[in-house]
């Protein structure tokens, strides 16, 4: 993990409210593993005060580049979206515990809601190259469906669902997952599921995976202060074998990727 000054190499708006940011940071690019995040200081001043955590979307280790895909949701991301090329940004990273990838099992199922596709993409590119992978992507409308072309060109089978039916199936991503898990059961192929998206979606994904007895890893988001495990601000409730049956773990340190079974939704 490094505490470093990065330079903005480029930044583009992909669809309204969603931006792709490319940073020069050989140290982070070299070390980063899928599911990890970078903690960016948006401004030198005191408002906004805290850093903002972003999943690592993609890295180019040879060129020393790190990409972040983010949605403008508040003051911090709005300011970030206006940053010009060449500006320097403080970055801490890579941070956190990423996806655990097992070589066994019957294929990989990626489930993403909206901007949740960001860390999934790194996972595909980095570890699944050449392996059978299926991505299920959901969003409210067509504009929220990201990266499907890139995933397809990387050999990943992509299924899409939108709430309004403007792209792919009309429905939610868990409908797609249900169909995949059902088909997998008939074929006696047990996949491993990697999911990222809104909490309600993740809870449904976790419940489905439990019902089908399929292992599932989820990537969680939280408000965060230090990113280093010190402030305990990013706590998430997880099961524990000792009374009272639960404990809090840190999204920044034990996470952001957790076994779905562990999380108390």
């Amino acid at each position: 993990m490094t505490d470093t000054k990065t330079t903005i190499l480029h930044q583009e708006r992909i669809v309204p409210q969603i931006f792709r940011l490319c940073l020069s940071s050989p140290g982070i690019a070299q070390e980063a593993r899928p599911g990890q995040f970078v903690h960016l200081r948006i401004r030198e001043g005191t408002d906004p005060l805290l850093r903002r955590p972003f999943s690592i979307h993609r890295v180019d280790r040879e060129r020393g580049e790190v990409q972040v895909l983010y949605q403008v949701v508040g003051q911090g991301t709005r300011l970030l979206s206006r940053k010009p090329v060449g500006e320097r940004l403080d970055a801490l990273g890579p941070l956190g515990h990423g996806f655990e990838v097992s070589e066994e099992g019957g294929g990989v199922l990626l489930v993403a809601g909206g901007i949740g596709i960001a860390p999934r993409f790194f996972l595909c590119e980095d570890w699944l190259r050449g392996r059978a992978g299926t991505a299920l992507i959901g969003a409210r409308t067509r504009d929220g469906i990201l990266c499907h072309d890139l995933l397809r060109s990387g050999g990943v089978t992509v299924h899409i669902a939108t709430d309004d039916g403007s792209f792919g199936d009309r429905g939610v991503v868990t409908d797609l997952l249900n169909a995949q898990l059902e088909a997998g059961r008939e074929a006696s192929a047990s996949p491993i599921v990697y999911a990222c998206g809104p909490v309600a979606m993740l809870a449904s994904v976790a419940a489905l995976c439990r019902a089908y007895e399929v292992p599932c890893q989820v990537s969680l988001e939280s408000r965060m202060a230090c990113g280093l495990g010190a402030c305990l601000g990013c706590a998430v409730k997880v099961r524990s074998s000792v009374p009272p049956g639960y404990e809090y773990q840190r999204v920044c340190t034990e996470g952001p990727v957790f076994e779905a079974e562990e999380v108390i939704w």
């Binding site: 906004p48 408000r223 601000g233 706590a235 998430v236 639960y246 809090y248």
Partner: peptide
Amino acid sequence: LGNPPPRIVETAS
């Protein structure tokens, strides 16, 4: 164990 989340929120400065 500490308090239930959310545990932090940013405010003006």
